Lab assay of single mutants.
Amino acid sequence: MTEYKLVVVGAGGVGKSALTIQLIQNHFVDEYDPTIEDSYRKQVVIDGETCLLDILDTAGQEEYSAMRDQYMRTGEGFLCVFAINNTKSFEDIHHYREQIKRVKDSEDVPMVLVGNKCDLPSRTVDTKQAQDLARSYGIPFIETSAKTRQGVDDAFYTLVREIRKHKEKMSKDGKKKKKKSKTKCVIM
């Protein structure tokens, strides 16, 4: 069974824990209790493949930012979460993405942009803004509501699919490099 290491990042209060708990335990946590770091595991079937999701729910508070490099190193894919009623959390996505790329030393890291709290009427981040940002990053965008469960499975499952595509691409690139290195030079 394939294991996928997913990391949920975003500013404090955007609903990272609520999304994760909704996926794992099928219930909505409405009281806000700032996370330092929590880890969850769940076995699911995605596109006919049974897999184990190892999900790291991270601290959004700035005082825990020193811990970010460590979990970013171990993560295979990242859910970059903002709240649709919090423009600052949307603007912060850029910083999370840049930090992930720096730590992973790669421009090509599996990510999904997630606009959470889409059940709320007080939207300050337009869907088109988020779609445009995701398009500019070359990553999928999904709106979710941890409260109603809308888009929750889709967000995590899409990230797994992005990781699969990335692994497939990397193995193809690896095979191309191996083929090239088999060419021999004969000096007579």
Results as ranks from 00 to 15, higher is better:
D126N: 10
D105N: 14
A66E: 13
L79C: 03
E76H: 14
L120R: 04
L79F: 08
L120M: 11
N86R: 03
G77Q: 01
T74E: 14
F82R: 01
K117E: 08
R123L: 11
R97I: 15
F90T: 10
F82M: 14
K88R: 07
E107Y: 11
A83I: 00
S65K: 06
P110W: 02
T124I: 09
R68F: 05
K88A: 10
R102M: 08
D69K: 05
S106A: 08
D119Q: 02
Q70V: 04
V114N: 00
S122Y: 09
E76K: 09
E107H: 08
T124M: 12
V125H: 11
K117L: 15
L120D: 06
M67H: 13
F78C: 04
C80M: 14
D69C: 02
K101D: 03
G77D: 00
E107M: 08
P121E: 14
C80G: 04
V114C: 07
P121D: 13
L79Q: 01
V114G: 02
A83N: 15
F90N: 00
D108R: 05
K104F: 06
I100E: 00
S65C: 09
G75N: 07
G115Q: 05
E98V: 01
E98Q: 07
F90D: 00
V112E: 01
F78Y: 08
R68V: 09
C80K: 02
K117W: 15
V109T: 04
E91W: 08
Q70T: 06
R102A: 07
S65L: 05
H94Y: 05
Q70S: 09
K104P: 02
G77S: 02
A66R: 05
P110Y: 02
Q70P: 11
V114F: 03
V112L: 05
T87D: 11
D119F: 00
G75Y: 14
L120I: 06
Q70D: 15
I93E: 00
S65E: 14
S106Q: 09
E63T: 09
M111I: 13
M72Q: 07
P110T: 03
R97Y: 15
V103E: 03
N116Y: 02
M72L: 11
K101A: 07
Y64D: 15
Y71N: 13
T124K: 11
K117C: 15
V81H: 02
G75F: 10
G77T: 00
N86Y: 06
D126Y: 08
D108G: 07
G115N: 04
D108V: 05
M111E: 01
C118I: 11
K104Q: 10
E107A: 12
F82K: 01
D119H: 03
K101R: 12
Y71R: 09
G77L: 10
H94D: 14
L120C: 12
V112Q: 00
L120V: 08
H94R: 07
A83L: 01
I84W: 13
F90Q: 06
N86A: 03
F82I: 07
H95L: 05
V81P: 03
R68Y: 07
L113D: 00
E63A: 02
D69T: 04
E107L: 13
V109N: 01
F90V: 14
V109G: 02
K104G: 06
D126C: 10
K104R: 14
V81W: 02
R102W: 00
I84R: 11
P110G: 01
M67P: 12
Q70N: 10
E91M: 06
H94L: 11
V114I: 14
K117S: 11
V114Q: 01
Y96K: 05
E98A: 07
D126Q: 10
K88G: 13
T124F: 10
F90S: 02
D126K: 05
K117P: 00
T124C: 10
G115C: 09
E91P: 04
E98N: 03
S89W: 04
Y64R: 13
F90A: 05
M111Y: 02
P110F: 04
P121R: 10
K117D: 09
R68M: 11
Y71W: 08
M72P: 09
T124R: 09
H95F: 02
D92R: 03
F78A: 02
F82L: 08
R73F: 04
R102E: 09
D108L: 05
R68P: 14
K101L: 10
R68C: 08
Y96V: 12
D126P: 05
V125L: 13
D105Y: 03
S106G: 13
F82E: 00
Y71M: 14
L113Y: 04
M67W: 04
G77I: 12
E98C: 02
R123K: 11
V109C: 07
L113I: 09
F82P: 01
N116E: 04
R68S: 12
D105P: 06
F78L: 06
D119S: 04
V125G: 13
K88M: 13
I100M: 06
K88D: 03
T74K: 07
F82W: 07
C80T: 04
D69S: 06
L79Y: 00
F78N: 00
T124Q: 12
V81E: 03
M72Y: 10
I93A: 03
Y71V: 12
D69V: 01
H95E: 08
R102P: 02
S106C: 14
S122D: 14
S89D: 04
G115S: 06
S106D: 09
G75S: 11
E76T: 13
V103C: 03
R102Y: 02
E63S: 05
R68I: 04
V112S: 01
G77C: 12
A66D: 12
R123P: 13
P121V: 09
V109F: 11
Y96R: 01
L113P: 02
L120T: 08
L113M: 07
Y96P: 02
R123V: 12
A66M: 08
D119L: 02
V114S: 01
V81N: 05
Q99V: 11
S65P: 13
K101E: 07
N116H: 15
V125T: 13
Q70R: 10
K117F: 15
I93Y: 01
Q99A: 04
E76I: 14
V125P: 11
M67R: 09
M72A: 10
M67A: 12
D119G: 08
N116I: 11
M67I: 10
D119T: 03
E98G: 03
P121F: 09
M67T: 14
V81G: 02
R123G: 14
V125N: 11
S89I: 09
N86E: 10
R123D: 14
P110K: 03
I100K: 01
E63I: 04
